[in-house]
């Protein structure tokens, strides 16, 4: 099938065409450009929710329960579930679907697992593009699940409208919560597996932190106790997502947030392209090898080597 035919089927709502198109983008095939041009004009309608947190905190299970609930209000939901690729074999075991079995036969729900393929920001390389494709396909809600994250993988918050950070009682005490990173990006915090010992302590630590950090903010991230497997707390989670959406709309923040994301993407892609162009230059490559030897033999410092390389940049076309 040609790309034109795929796109036509895509427009008709054909799931297999959707799936094939995602594969083309994920693998960076030649046809990507044509697809992205088509998709780019059709995005912006879906509301995007990000779910992040440590591995084993229950993100996939939460998504399954949340999506099931949201189905009573929305017909079309897309889910992107990221799992890590092996840095050794480059293979991956994508297991998020195990927790989402109850969604497999739901019409209107489309789940795609993505391996990170070397990306280190908690998401797969083309997560954003795949979310755009789902958006253009007509999904009203898109839920993006990160891989199990540590403290620094905050990229998800630039990709979505509402970020949900999931902790479990084992995530640590108040000091962990005070540390930077993950605790700064949540629009909503969830303490999952809240039947376990320590859940209430973590709950109050998070509440305290938010009370301190968001004193002058109109939006104070709520903290919710959930037990995803038992479907406990999901109703409240849904309610808070809607509250956050309303907050963004009433304060004209949704557009602002999305524009910021566009700027970021532009900057990132621009910088990446520049780097690519630089490394394609034979002159740069040659000089680089020379500089490596000079630094290695301690003839020049790293800083001096960098200066030499920068001088070469202006000759790159």
């Amino acid at each position: 099938m040609t790309i034109k035919e795929y796109l036509k089927k895509f427009e008709e709502g054909d799931e297999r065409a959707l799936s094939k198109i995602i594969t083309i983008i994920e693998n960076g095939y030649e046809e990507s450009k044509e697809i992205l041009e088509y998709i780019g004009k059709r995005t912006g309608k879906a509301y995007r929710i990000g779910i992040t947190g440590p591995q084993g905190s229950g993100k996939s299970t939460l998504i399954a329960k949340l999506a099931k609930r949201l189905l009573s209000k929305f017909k079309e939901i897309g889910i992107i579930a990221c799992d890590p690729s092996s840095p050794f074999s480059f293979g991956a075991l994508l297991g998020d679907r195990i927790r989402m079995n109850e969604l497999f036969l739901e019409k209107g729900i489309f789940i795609r697992s993505m391996a990170t393929r070397g990306s280190l920001n908690g998401l797969a390389y083309k997560t954003k593009e795949v979310a755009d494709i789902l958006d253009a396909f007509g999904k009203e809600i898109i839920i993006i699940e990160t891989i199990g994250v540590g403290q620094v993988e905050v990229e998800i918050s630039n990709l979505v409208d509402t970020t949900i950070v999931v902790f479990v009682p084992e995530s640590g005490d108040g000091i962990q919560v005070l540390k930077a990173g993950l605790t700064e990006i949540g629009d909503i915090f969830v303490v999952n597996k809240s039947d376990r010992i320590g859940a209430d302590i973590l709950f109050y630590e998070l509440k305290n932190l938010i009370e301190m950090s968001y004193q002058n903010s109109k939006w104070k991230p709520p903290v919710i106790l959930t037990q995803a497997v038992n479907n406990y707390g999901i109703e409240e989670l849904e309610k808070e997502i809607i509250n956050h959406y309303n907050y963004l709309i009433e304060n004209n923040l949704l557009e602002e947030k999305r524009k910021k994301a566009v700027i970021r993407e532009l900057v990132n892609n621009f910088e990446n392209e520049i780097l690519k162009i630089l490394w394609q230059s034979e002159r740069v490559k040659k000089l680089f090898e020379k500089v490596v030897e000079e630094v290695w033999e301690k003839k020049i410092t790293i800083e001096e080597g960098v200066k030499k390389l920068i001088k070469e940049v202006k000759y790159v076309k």
Binding site: S85, S86, S89, F90, G91, A92, L93, L94, G95, R97, I98, N101, F104, S113, A115
Partner: peptide, 13 residues
Amino acid sequence: GLRDAGFEVIYTG
């Protein structure tokens, strides 16, 4: 095993 051979494997339970 397939993961270790470099494939992307989806297991659904």
